[in-house]
Design a protein around this nucleic acid. Structure first.
Lengths: 137, 137
DNA sequence: AATTACTCTACTAAGTCTATAGGGTAACAT
DNA sequence: ATGTTACCCTATAGACTTAGTAGAGTAATT
């Protein structure tokens, strides 16, 4: 299951992508428009800022804004930040690889075999879709 | 993330698929061979039996066995039983559809758009792979 | 200089899910 | 009858998710 954090995060990002570049949008505005709990959204935007996707401006007229062109932000990045590893099992993760403690031989593991296929296809889809692709279709 | 329940379930199923048809295998045998907690495996095999994938025989010489030819069991079925819906969001699920309460229009929802693609590609992979495909490669 | 509009940080808490453990019961084979 | 084995029920520690609450810090405006 996709966490609400990820769902809300993507919605907020697409909202920002629809705005004029570099015009800060307040949390409350996004929260109301997308029906997201204000405080929860606050913490989500914070992680997006910390990971370099968003910039923020304090004080009056402040808010959050995208740091890059929506075309340049691919969903692989977004998903990794919000949802974590793309792979469903650590032993097939490219960025967060971990050996299974119960599995003596990965090459012989049926789960591994299947999950590599799932990972590759998902990686392809996330790579083919930028934030810009999600707002005009 | 793939739950351990699913992971263990798939391992147990492939173990059974490697045996001679209709020869019951004890839980303990699978548990030891695949390094799975006995009690946990017990509950997993129970759900697999209740959903019609496995048969069981009580008493001495008893155990679990596959009810169908491994070629006839596609991973879509297995995943649905063990992991639940294939879709990552209820609003794109074919079998467990639910409307999002925050989303006014699915057709305009970026998350929906992306998750449909993910669902379709995963469904394709699970559909192309039977239990038999997972043991000989 | 005061006020206002924001972001930032931390703490708490209910709810759910995961993974495991223990004990007892019913069917079956010998 | 006896032992083997599936079956069933309950409990629990821990982690994670999704919030809610309170307050501190910062920048622009008046």
């Amino acid at each position: 299951m996709l966490s609400k954090k990820t769902k809300y995060g993507i919605k907020a990002l697409t909202y920002l992508a629809k705005q004029e570049p570099n015009t800060p949008v307040q949390i409350a505005t996004i929260s109301e428009s997308e029906n997201i709990s204000l405080k929860f959204l606050e913490s989500i935007l914070l992680t997006l800022r910390k990971s370099g996707l968003l910039g923020s401006k304090k004080g009056k007229g402040g808010g959050y804004y995208l740091l890059k062109d929506p075309k340049e932000i691919e969903m692989t990045t977004v998903m990794r930040i919000l949802e974590g590893p793309i792979a469903m099992v650590p032993c097939v993760s490219l960025n967060y690889y971990e050996k299974c403690d119960d599995c003596p031989d990965e090459a012989e593991c049926a789960v591994h075999y299947l999950m590599v296929k799932i990972r590759d296809s998902n990686l392809k889809i996330y790579g083919e879709n930028s934030l810009a692709d999600l707002i005009n279709y």
